[in-house]
Amino acid sequence: MTELLLVGIGTGNPDHITLEGRKALQGADLILIPRKGPEKSDLAELRRRIVLQSVRDGMDRVVEFDLPVRDPDLPYLEAVERWHDAIAELWAVTLAAHPDAHSAALLVWGDPSLYDSTLRIAARLDPTPKVRVIPGITALQALTAAHAIPLNTLAGSVEITTGRRLRDTGWPDGAETVAVMLDGACAFETLDPDGLQIWWGAYLGMDEQILSAGPLEEAAPHIMRIRAEARDRHGWIMDTYLLRRTGVPG
Rank of each mutant, 00 (worst) to 15 (best):
I9E: 10
L19H: 04
G21M: 02
R22I: 13
K23W: 09
A24I: 02
G27T: 10
R35L: 11
G37N: 03
E39W: 06
E39A: 12
E39T: 12
L52Q: 13
S54Q: 08
V55Y: 07
G58M: 04
R61A: 11
P68A: 11
P68M: 04
D73I: 00
V80Q: 05
E81V: 00
R82H: 04
A86E: 15
E89H: 11
D100F: 09
A104N: 11
A104H: 09
L107H: 10
L107C: 12
W109A: 08
D111Y: 03
D111T: 05
L114A: 04
L114G: 02
T118A: 14
L119V: 13
R120A: 14
A122F: 11
K130V: 08
G136Y: 12
Q141D: 01
A146W: 09
I149R: 12
L154I: 14
G156T: 07
V158G: 02
V158C: 03
G163C: 03
R167W: 12
R167Y: 10
W171Y: 10
D173M: 09
T177E: 01
M181C: 01
L182G: 00
D183Y: 00
A185I: 09
L191G: 05
L191R: 08
W199N: 13
W199I: 02
G201K: 08
G201T: 09
A202D: 01
G205S: 07
I210S: 02
L216M: 09
L216K: 05
E217F: 07
H222E: 12
I223E: 09
R227K: 15
E229C: 06
A230G: 00
R231W: 02
G235V: 10
T240K: 00
L242D: 11
R244G: 03
R245S: 05
P249R: 06
